[in-house]
């Protein structure tokens, strides 16, 4: 099968890559663009660990064809790091112990970042509901929710992200 060239912005950088029609975005991100921060634990849209922001919205990249991402802007957890500094949501995850094995963490971080951008004044209930498309087996979620509730202040602009 002949491949085709697509162009996308990955974490702010323009990337051209040859993909085949039946390749998922997950496959291309990991194996062709070497973006290993995008994990997978089910390959079926259940666990959410392959979540990336596509044109500003979280999608499960195992359920998206790579060709569909032609021309799109993709952001992963790696892309939230600016000038070697963790973003406020990443710092909050670290400080609140919101991770253990870490395999789900990039997905939770990038999804939470999107969520807080859209809703910087969330209730705990809203955070829980939003996170329910993602599975974390280690933490029991409570410290993840704490981290997100705490990081919200940065998104409200109440507090400047500082080292």
């Amino acid at each position: 099968m002949a491949g085709r060239m697509i162009t996308l912005r990955l974490n702010g950088q323009e990337r051209r890559v040859e993909v085949e029609d039946n390749e998922t975005l997950l496959y291309v991100l990991r194996y062709k663009l070497k973006e290993m921060s995008v994990k997978s634990a089910c390959w079926k849209g259940e666990c959410g660990l392959c979540t990336v922001l596509m044109d500003g919205k979280p999608v499960k990249s195992c359920m998206v064809l790579a060709v569909e991402a032609d021309g799109s802007d993709i952001v992963t957890a790696t892309g939230l790091v600016k000038d070697g500094e963790l973003s406020p949501i990443q710092k909050a995850f670290v400080e609140h112990g919101a991770l253990q094995c870490g395999f789900c963490t990039p997905a939770f971080v990038v999804a939470a970042h999107h969520f807080l951008q859209k809703n910087p004044n969330p209730t705990r209930e809203q955070v829980k509901e939003f996170l329910s498309g993602l599975i974390c087996r280690c933490t029991g979620y409570a410290q993840i929710i704490d981290a997100i509730m705490d990081a919200a202040k940065y998104y409200r602009g109440e507090q400047k992200a500082s080292p």
């Binding site: 921060s37 963790l86 995850f93 991770l99 870490g102």
Partner: peptide, 21 residues
Amino acid sequence: KPVPPPDSYEKVTGTAPYTFD
């Protein structure tokens, strides 16, 4: 004292290497 494990920094940035990667 509440000390985050040092590997937390790699994990939140998605740069921690697993065999999977």
